[in-house]
């Protein structure tokens, strides 16, 4: 990689010199060189995005109009059939509902818990670093391993599950947490993700808290504000930008949920029950997960999900901008 760059060592200084003394010809060359360097620096990234993101998406858009079973070069054009199949598929629609339910649970919960931990740690004199590490460290664990612990030990529906054991000692009886007959699997799913990600967002929020100028608090304290009022009128408004970023990240991550759903609920031989299916799991099951490799259907599903994100992203962007404008007014 460095070899071709080295050969261009000579003219490298040109752009800057040109920038200082703007004769017309030099400036043009400078610009060109500048563009050349820019191209060189972004080329790997741009090429990678194109080859592994955008061309594949275009290809899938193409596949989505074909009956593409077990082939990536289909011949049977089916028009919008894959789309209408998916949109009329009650399981696909319910998978979108599962995402909504999951997001409604996990996004505010994670935010509140992360903020709670961040506030609990702020200004702590002794052992702050220790507690911060303890809450942060689950970030390093994979969803696969966490799901293993949750499925086999914590929320096992059998007599040997930790929670069931405790329930029986307290005089209750076993709960079939993950079986789908009740909503126990939501408890497992949400607590798992909470455990795994809360520390990361706590760190983001701690950083946000540290950026609030100390004087703001001092001024408020002089005004007699304390406790909840301090939080309500000083901390939260000052934290708005960080909070927006955190909530956005949480939402994007919730949309991608796959690993813990799959590892908590999937059965033997790659089967997956009809409940608790977020969009990615459903898409996997109907397109790549079974014995029928239906890439046309998978392509259509990808297009629909991407469209949802784009629409949502545009809406979110618009709302944020409006919010900023309103603040500036």
């Amino acid at each position: 990689m460095s070899a071709p760059a080295g050969t261009r060592g000579g003219p490298g200084i040109a752009p800057l010199a040109a920038g200082r003394r703007p004769t017309w010809g030099r400036r043009l060359r400078g610009r060109q060189d500048r563009n050349l360097w820019f191209g060189l620096f972004v080329l790997p990234f741009l090429a990678g995005l194109l080859v592994f993101v955008y061309v594949p998406i275009a290809w899938s858009a193409y596949l989505s109009f074909f009956e593409a079973r077990a082939t990536v070069t289909p011949t049977k054009f089916v028009g919008w059939a894959n789309y209408s199949y998916l949109l009329s598929d009650p399981e696909f629609r319910s998978s979108l509902l599962v995402f909504v339910a999951f997001a409604v649970l996990i996004v505010p919960l994670t935010y509140v818990c992360s903020l709670g931990l961040a506030l609990l740690l702020s200004g702590l004199r002794v052992a702050q670093a220790f507690f911060r590490s303890v809450f942060f460290i689950p970030t390093a664990v994979s969803y696969v391993i966490a799901a293993m612990i949750w499925r086999i030990s914590f929320f096992n529906g059998g007599r040997f599950g930790l929670i069931n054991s405790m329930l029986r000692q307290l005089g209750g009886s076993n709960i079939d947490w993950l079986g789908g007959a009740n909503y126990g699997y939501w408890v497992a799913l949400v607590s798992l993700r909470l455990w795994l990600q809360v520390g990361f967002y706590m760190i983001l929020l701690i950083a946000g808290l540290n950026r609030i100028p100390q004087e703001t608090y001092e001024a408020a304290a002089i005004d007699g504000a304390a406790g909840w009022r301090l939080l309500r009128y000083i901390t939260l408004p000052q934290l708005r930008a960080t909070s927006a970023a955190v909530l956005m990240l949480l939402l994007i991550n919730a949309f991608q949920a796959f690993d813990e759903f799959w590892n908590l609920l999937s059965g033997v031989n790659g089967t997956y029950p009809p409940y608790g299916r977020p969009p990615l799991v459903h898409l996997f099951v109907i397109s790549l997960g079974g014995s029928n490799q239906d890439l046309g259907l998978g392509g259509a599903g990808t297009m629909i999900l991407t469209a949802i994100i784009v629409v949502f992203g545009v809406a979110q962007n618009w709302l944020t901008n409006r919010g900023v404008e309103r603040d500036e007014r």
């Binding site: 077990a70 031989n269 029928n292």
Partner: peptide, 12 residues
């Protein structure tokens, strides 16, 4: 691993 999925995928 999941043999029922792996074989059709491998045939591609």
């Amino acid at each position: 691993g999941n043999y029922d999925t792996a074989v059709p995928a491998a045939l591609l």
